[in-house]
């Protein structure tokens, strides 16, 4: 029960950050990606702020034996720069550019524009199911 609350608080702060920074507005995200047009650098500050906090937190994490509320850290260990990483990121980037939404803002937008968010999330889940059926091994 406690851990569920920790996860909920983490998601709530994350979602609040997405809304405050304007990342739940596809227009602003596409403005950042419109590098050769009327470029909107707001997303640089969003990612900069988040990376700044997490860069410090990773230094704290290195000095911890275990997380506060779990037995051990469970972190990604993959190191290889393979075609899956590149192709996957490229496909994601195309979808991101088309809609101006990535997964986090897609969920956060449920509170702000539910009709549109549900359609995007239906596509998101469909894509994940498709991956599971075809490429997951």
């Amino acid at each position: 029960m406690r851990n569920i609350l920790v996860s909920l608080v983490s998601g709530t702060l994350f979602g609040a950050g997405l809304a405050v920074s304007g990342m739940t507005n596809p227009l602003r995200v596409r403005g950042f990606l419109d590098l050769f047009g009327t470029w909107d650098p707001t997303l640089v500050f969003v990612m900069g702020g988040a990376v700044l906090v997490m860069a410090v937190i990773w230094q704290v994490q290195r000095r911890m034996v275990a997380p506060f509320f779990a037995d051990a850290f469970a972190l990604p260990t993959a190191k290889d720069l393979d075609w899956r990483l590149i192709l996957g990121a490229a496909l994601f980037g195309i979808g991101w550019g088309v809609a101006g939404l990535c997964p986090g803002p897609g969920f956060a937008a449920l509170a702000l524009a539910p009709a549109q968010a549900i359609i995007f999330l239906a596509g998101l889940f469909g894509g994940m199911v498709l991956f599971r059926l075809t490429m997951d091994n």
């Binding site: 496909l91 809609a99 596509g123 998101l124 889940f125 490429m135």
Partner: peptide, 14 residues
């Protein structure tokens, strides 16, 4: 939105 969602879902898993 639906088409972009598909690309985002598949791409982020891959």
């Amino acid at each position: 939105l639906l088409g972009a969602g598909l690309l985002v879902g598949f791409g982020t898993r891959l």
